[in-house]
Amino acid sequence: MSARIRATFDDAGARGWLHAVSLDHPDQTVALDPDVVVPIASVYKLPLLAAFCHLIDTQELNPREQVTLAPEDRIPGATGLSILQDPVTMSLRDLAVSMMTVSDNAAADALLNRVGVDRLAQLLQSFGLEHTRVRRGAAGNLSELRRRTGTSDVDAAFAVLADNDQTDPVGMYDAAGMSASSARDMTTLLASLWSGRLLSEEQTAFAQRLMQQQVFSQRLASGFPYDGVRVAGKTGTFGALRHEVGVVVMPGGDAYAVAVFAHAARGDYRLPRVDAAIGEAARLAVDQLR
C-alpha cells in the first residue's frame, strides 16, 4: 500500500509523508515514513487549539475574554483578520474559530501569545506528542522567511519561493527552524481528541466542530466526493509545502485519523495536482483500513 501511495505523490511531483489509523481499531494503520519530522506550516494551529481548549478546561483561560487587535498589530496572511483594515474586538474562542476554519494567521498569532510558547510546549509533551514543536507563531516564521530570501516584504519573499527559475534558499524547509511534527504525532493528537480523553465533553465538541467547519476542501475532502462522508481537517500551506491532517467519518460512523504532508517540487502558489494527491493518498489509506 505504501508503494501505491508513494506512486501517487511521485505522479503529482511531490514528496509525501502519511499516517492513517482506524479510530475503532488503533492497531490498523497505513504509513509512509510516518516518523519523519516535517515543517508543518499552519497545521501547528491544531496543537495550539488543543492546548487552548485544555487551558479553558483547567480555567487558566477564559474563552469569552475580549481581545482588541489593531491592524498594525496583526500579522500578514491570506485570510481572516489578516486582510481586514480596522481594529477588531473578538473573544478568544472566536479567534480560535477564525484560526481553524480559514487558517487566520493574525487570530492564531494572538491566541499563541495568550497560550504562550513555553506553556504550549509543556502541554504538547503531556499530550504524548514527542516530535511536535511549535517554535514561533506565524510572525516569527514570516520574519525568518524575509531573512532567508533577503527580501523586505512578505509578498516578495513568497515570490522567491514560488519562482521555478530559482533555487530555494538554503534551509528554507528545514524542520529544525520551524514548527514541525510527524504524521504519526498528528494522528495521535487527532485520535485522543476524538476519543474524548484529551478534553472535556464541551471542549471536545468545540474543537471537532471547528475542524468540521474547515472551508478548504481541495485536499483531504477532495478524496471523498460523497456528502455522506464527513471530513474534519486542518490544512497547512507554506511555499512548496501542502499539508492536511484530519478525521474522515464514513456513513456508517467508522472514523479514521489521517495526516498527510507533502513537499512539492514546484513552488507555484497554486498546485492543484498536489492538493488532489493529498485527497487521493488519504482515500487509498482509508480504503485499506475499511
Binding site: G13, A14, R15, N164, D165, T167, H263, A265, G267
Partner: peptide, 16 residues
C-alpha cells in the same frame, strides 16, 4: 530536470 522531487539529495543552482 528542475523542478523534481529531490528527497535528501544535494543540489546546485538552477541553470536555464
Amino acid at each position: 530536470l528542475h523542478p523534481a522531487v529531490l528527497d535528501g539529495l544535494q543540489a546546485g543552482p538552477v541553470t536555464l
